[in-house]
Design a protein around this nucleic acid. Structure first.
Lengths: 203, 203
DNA sequence: TAGATTGTTAATCGATTAACAATC
DNA sequence: TAGATTGTTAATCGATTAACAATC
């Protein structure tokens, strides 16, 4: 959808946004050089990345901080509200339901799903836990387009199939499973243990 | 440490390992082509990646599955036991303490740390929750070299500083903060909300 | 043998960096 | 004006892919 931005650039945009938001209200302008120094990157790369958005720098001055933040938010779709669901209300699923950071990107968590009858009907941080047997109905009725899979690995593929079937466009998968999904749905796996092992191998 | 393997290759090794482990006990050999097809990648890339490990394929046959798994485990250090701690025993921290997947990579979770007196002295999944005031002492005594930061963003940098001070070599950071650490310590941030937003932008 | 597969060398592709003109 | 900064074009670098010799 996002024309021709490299994925690597796209992945850096939230990093810029995050950093810019930490700057106090007295900062009005910021240059690509200053951003680059703060983030330990090359300044040309910063300018190129920012150029994919609608941000416009001013020569001799840099970028107007508020405009730059707005451009990044706009590009990342933070102003389009998107509904998301957490599938699996175990420890991780519940932690994510309680996490407030999704709102920064226009993502609204609308429900969790689980198969445990002691959880179904309850809520976490105000978000209802629904019966995973009603996943399809719930996803459709709530207009969910993003999902996070936090179910045990053996259920992950069937959950993904049902999500795709219901029109979910992007899935973040915490189960250590390779999910097979058709074109039109984007999946990303996050394997915390593997990440830590790789970090260790790098050090 | 790992000579000259590209980070991109290194990050794929756990994916191969995971896939290979799902293959039933009746599979004795596997070719790079079969792996590539299953994972949707190019077969030359698979061979190149595997060549960084001690794996040796056999012409006409492929790799001996058990040998290949062993080579990957060896390369990723799954046979060196490394002690890890989770800093912050909120929802996410506790979920990670309960997660059994670390053992696959030779990572042993030895403790959680928190500042909440109602949690200190307790345990999660058999792992003790220690007082974060004693972080330095605990990390040193327990021989922790890997850490996962799950504390609120405002504490993240100071926790990181203390971890580095105590010799922690790799940090996985779930707080949405840019951590400043010296050479010799590797940090990786995981921002679940940003990941989901990027996925959405890609679709 | 013919065919399948590995491992490596060369070619391609894409992302990052360097150079620089434009501008205020 | 001089200097700082953007945005873009060209060069470099690194990772992926293609080609192919070796082998069983």
């Amino acid at each position: 959808m996002k024309s021709n931005i490299p994925v690597t650039s796209l992945q850096r945009l939230p990093v810029y946004l995050n950093y810019l938001k930490t700057l106090g209200g007295d900062v009005k302008f910021i240059s690509s050089g200053a951003i680059a120094r703060a983030l330990g990157m090359g300044e040309v790369l910063v300018r190129k990345d920012l150029a994919y958005t609608s941000a416009q720098g001013r020569t001799r001055v840099g970028y107007v901080l508020s405009e730059l933040i707005a451009a990044l938010e706009d590009y990342l779709g933070c102003n389009d509200i998107k509904n998301a669901a957490i599938i699996g209300a175990g420890g991780l699923g519940r932690a994510l339901l309680s996490y407030g950071g999704f709102g920064n990107y226009g993502i609204e968590l609308v429900a969790g799903f689980d198969n445990d009858s002691s959880k179904i009907g309850g809520d976490v941080a105000g978000k209802p836990i629904l019966d995973i047997a009603d996943l399809d109905k719930g996803i459709r009725e709530l207009g969910v387009t993003l999902a996070v899979i936090c179910v045990p690995v053996k259920y992950a593929q069937s959950v993904a199939d049902r999500l795709v079937e219901c029109g979910v466009k992007a899935i973040l998968n915490f189960a250590p499973a390779l999910l097979n999904v058709p074109e039109g749905c984007t999946v990303r796996n996050i394997d915390v243990a593997a990440n830590l092992a790789v970090l260790y191998s790098m050090s």
